[in-house]
Structures are given as structure tokens and as C-alpha cells.
């Protein structure tokens, strides 16, 4: 059962088909990841450190090149056309933009300037950009108050808002959201996910997010993929993942059935236990 069938009958906006990613010609990071994101959906990629979440997103946004990584097998199709031929800036123009892990705001630019860089690909459309700036401030009222501060001096939450707002300024069809909860207070995480959901509903922006915070991610996403060691080990509707015993025990911390023998546990769970 694919995500597209669970959600709606519309075509998938993004199709990742069995991709393999190798860094530096030798390090195999993704070994056959496939996923689909339906138009207008919120899909989550879950998994621990080093599972390959970020690499998957960067493969989609074509940012791997800057880290000496390359997609060696498989295909990625965004909006019906492959992404291999497009440079990152062409992809942004086509409507696929990534919010990188750790925010990556431009520290020496003000919050407002940061937002405006997001509209770079739109050229001189002044009126449209101004209107969208207002839209971003409506979603993130906090940013309006901080508009003249240097982004480097704002708090983690404000930086995350700036990064998301900046992506929104490009008028995207899809936002790839990498680890939005990283280093933020639980309350703030909740607030940011609320806004992301609102953006998804009101602006019709499709969201693909990578998260370690399985609990929050599965409450907002409609479909989820669990990645481990560069493979999809489980996928399903968010609801069914939330109720899955393995997911409960290893990702949500809701064991409750006492200790079990190590031998009974499947490979991906054993690994989780060692790391956890």
C-alpha cells in the first residue's frame, strides 16, 4: 500500500524509486530507498542518527553534490520530471525547496533579509514578494517583531521559523523539512509543527519531513517511513505506525510488556537497542 493510495487518489508529487547514495565513491549510505509523497500530503521519514534521513532529503533537493555524494542507482521524480538534470536553484524554481537540518540561517543578515533571500529565484516580482513577506509574518508573528535583528542573534526557535519562512518565500509546491525539532523546547516544537500543518492546509504546500522525534512527527504526518541503516524497514499510515508494537517500543518509548529475549528481536530493533 503506497502513500498515494492511503491519502487521496491524486498522483504522487514526489516519487523516489530505489535510490542508492554513495559518498566519496566508497561510503554506501542509502541502499535502495523508495518513497512517495502525494500532492498536498505530509509525509514523515523517521529513524535514528545516521539512518539516512538527511541524505534522502538532500538526494531529492540535489544538494548531495556539495558533499561529494552522488545517487548511483534509482530515480527521483518531482512533479513528473526527474531531478538529476536540474541544479538546486532550478529545483527551487520548479517548486521543491529544502529547509536544512540545523536551520542554516544567514547569520550576518537580518531576519527580513533572510526571508527575502528565499525569494531570490523569483527575480524582480516586488509586489508579489512583499505580499508573501506579509503572509510569512502572519504565520510567524514573532518574526515581524524580530525583523531587523541579525539572524545569528535570534533564538533557536526564531531561527527555525526564519528558515521555514525563507523556504515559503520561494512559493514552493513542496518543502523538505529536515529535523525541525532539533534543539528546541517541546512546547516550541509543538508550535512549529502546528504552523507547518497550517501552511500545508492553507497554502497547499506538500511537506516531506525527516524527524527523530517520532512522537510529534507521527501526530502531524499522515504517512511515515522508518529508515534504518539506509533502508526503509517499515512504512504505513501514521495511525498504524503509532499503534505498531515495535514502533511503540523502540521509537516512542512505550514498551510496557516487560523485558524480552534479545534473540526474539529483529535486526533493526537489535541495532536500536545498542544505540538506545
Amino acid at each position: 500500500m503506497s502513500a498515494a493510495e492511503v491519502e487521496t487518489a491524486t498522483d504522487a508529487l514526489l516519487k523516489v524509486n530505489n535510490i542508492e547514495v554513495i559518498y566519496d565513491h566508497v561510503i554506501l549510505v542509502l541502499r535502495g530507498v523508495s518513497l512517495e509523497v502525494p500532492q498536498g500530503g505530509i509525509v514523515a521519514i523517521l529513524g535514528g542518527n545516521g539512518a539516512g534521513k538527511t541524505t534522502t532529503l538532500k538526494a531529492i533537493s540535489n544538494l548531495l553534490g556539495t558533499e561529494r555524494g552522488e545517487v548511483t542507482k534509482g530515480t527521483i521524480e518531482f512533479d513528473g520530471i526527474g531531478v538529476e538534470a536540474s541544479s538546486p536553484n532550478e529545483l527551487v524554481k520548479r517548486g521543491c525547496i529544502q529547509v536544512m537540518e540545523g536551520r542554516h540561517c544567514f547569520e550576518h543578515l537580518t531576519v527580513e533579509e533572510n526571508l527575502l533571500t528565499g525569494a531570490f529565484t523569483r527575480g524582480g516580482d516586488r509586489a508579489g514578494i512583499q505580499a508573501d513577506l506579509e503572509m510569512v509574518y502572519t504565520y510567524f508573528p514573532r518574526l515581524r517583531e524580530r525583523r531587523t535583528s541579525l539572524a545569528g542573534y535570534t533564538s533557536g526557535g526564531e531561527q527555525q521559523m526564519t528558515a521555514i519562512g525563507r523556504a515559503l518565500m520561494s512559493r514552493p509546491k513542496m518543502i523538505l523539512l529536515d529535523e525541525p525539532s532539533m534543539g528546541l523546547a517541546p512546547q516550541l516544537v509543538e508550535q512549529i509543527f502546528e504552523i507547518v500543518k497550517k501552511i500545508n492546509e492553507q497554502e497547499g504546500v506538500t511537506i516531506l519531513l525527516a524527524e527523530q522525534n517520532t512522537n510529534v512527527a507521527l501526530r502531524y504526518a499522515k504517512y511515515g517511513y522508518i529508515l534504518e541503516s539506509g533502508r526503509v524497514v517499515m512504512e504505513g499510515a501514521a495511525e498504524s505506525l503509532r499503534n505498531n508494537e515495535d514502533v511503540k517500543e523502540f521509537y516512542l518509548g512505550l514498551g510496557g510488556e516487560g523485558r524480552r529475549s534479545f534473540r526474539d528481536i529483529k535486526h533493526y530493533r537489535r541495532r536500536k537497542r545498542w544505540l538506545g
Binding site: S61, L63, T66, S87, P88, N89, L91, V92, K93, I97, Q98, V99, M100, H104, C105, F106, E107, H108, L109, E113, L116, T117, G118, F120, T121, G124, R166, A167, S170
Partner: peptide, 23 residues
Amino acid sequence: TRIGRALRAVADDHQAALSVGIS
């Protein structure tokens, strides 16, 4: 200017600049 802003963005963070579509 828009280009000047992009130049400063690139100076700050190459990858982030790429990710927001600056060529």
C-alpha cells in the same frame, strides 16, 4: 540590492544559499 543580499548570503553559508535557490 537583491544580488548584493545574495552575495552576502553566499558568503555566510554556501550550502544554505544553494538550498534557497541562489545560483
